[in-house]
């Protein structure tokens, strides 16, 4: 995906103030995948689809930096006029106490207050600002990596009193205000469906029964789950021999199974190497759905072939480029 590399011209502007940070609110873009060769975690938004769609709604490049909120959203005061959009799991969102829709760009003015209430399903919301959040690039990305204490807003989660600066928007933001997607283009996180995986690289190190077990049982997302990975609990998966391998590259979406047979799904903040057998990898188009799962939720898996996964990805990218075209059709400022 194209990442915004260009530094925006003009001075940065303080656009919003964090009154309450919520459980875990961080600055994220599409991550620093090109630095994986240096052994650096990719990071970036967990639900990249919602992140990209939020950016498209406000006329940004789809990889611009946004806020990722988790389970309990932040309370934000706006310091000047601009356009925002909120996407992701189903949250109740209010502007000055009045309910406002997600998946629609909203004009806000100085003094407006954005608040969140309970999250009905899913667990992550994305708040995009026309112009994109302006924090320094670290290794090609504005994504926060809390474990490494770098990226995003001072390498940490946001807290009360933080001031969010944004860049200049590519377009007159008033023109994108009120934009929304057709309901069919909004991702469905609510309807339960299996998470599709491509088997391998080490599926042959599991018994045939283990693969059968994986696709015919529910797995629960344990409390021990975060941006680095989800530990799942369910019927254990048996290895033919042993669970350890000589360490290999791993990437978000990988399902590792250590000797206890309980799967671990690696997510955005995952390391770049792992020494346990990988039974399969969640396909890219289903990773956003996975990213909206929270502790206590259940997961079912379904195996598909790599060719089918590639077709599904092409289809999704086709749709996204069509949505992007609406931005390109706008006169730039």
């Amino acid at each position: 995906m194209e990442r915004t590399k260009t530094k925006r011209v003009g001075s940065e502007m303080e656009f919003a103030k964090i009154e309450k940070a919520g459980v875990l609110t961080t600055v994220q873009d599409l991550g620093r995948h090109s630095y994986q060769v240096f052994g650096v975690s990719a990071c970036g938004g967990m639900d990249t689809l919602a992140l990209r769609l939020a950016n498209i709604l406000v006329g940004n490049n789809e990889g611009d930096a946004v806020l990722e909120a988790t389970i309990i959203g932040p309370h934000i005061t706006f310091l000047r006029e601009g356009v925002i959009a909120i996407t992701g799991g189903s949250f109740s969102v209010y502007l000055n106490g009045k309910p406002v829709p997600m998946w629609k760009s909203l004009l806000v003015t100085e003094g407006d207050e954005l608040t969140f209430d309970s999250c009905k399903y899913g667990c992550r919301a994305y708040i995009a600002f026309a112009g994109g959040i302006d924090v320094p690039m670290v290794m090609g990305s504005r994504s926060t990596f809390i474990r490494g204490n770098y990226g995003g807003f001072e390498g940490r989660a946001l807290k009360k009193g933080d001031l969010i600066q944004i860049g200049h928007s590519r377009f007159d933001y008033r023109r994108v205000s009120g934009r929304k997607f057709k309901s069919g283009d909004v991702p469905d996180y609510k309807t339960a469906r299996p998470v599709r995986i491509v088997l391998g690289p080490h599926n042959n190190k599991f018994t045939n029964e283990a693969i059968q077990t994986l696709v015919s049982n529910h797995y629960n997302v344990s409390n021990n789950s975060d941006r680095m990975g989800y530990r799942l609990e369910g019927k254990p998966l048996q290895h033919v021999n042993k669970a350890d391998i000589i360490s290999e590259f791993i990437t978000p979406g990988v399902i590792q199974v250590p000797a206890n047979g309980q799967p671990i799904v690696h997510m955005s903040d995952a390391g770049t190497s792992g020494g346990y057998t990988v039974v399969g990898v969640i396909i890219s188009v289903d990773l956003p759905y996975m990213a909206q799962k929270k502790p206590g939720d259940q997961i079912e898996f379904e195996v598909i072939g790599v060719e089918e996964a590639q077709k599904l990805l092409s289809k999704q990218e086709q749709l996204l480029s069509e949505l992007q075209l609406a931005n390109l059709a706008m006169p730039s400022r």
Binding site: H33, S34, Q36, V37, I246, S247, E248, F249, T251, T272, S273, V306, E307, Q310, L313, S314, E317
Partner: peptide, 23 residues
């Protein structure tokens, strides 16, 4: 091909399947 990541006894080839398919 987007990037290559060498490990102990394996090489990861990261690619864009919209440009080139697996086979």
């Amino acid at each position: 091909i987007e990037r290559l990541i060498p490990a102990f006894n394996s090489l990861a080839v990261c690619y864009n399947p919209i440009i080139i398919k697996f086979n």
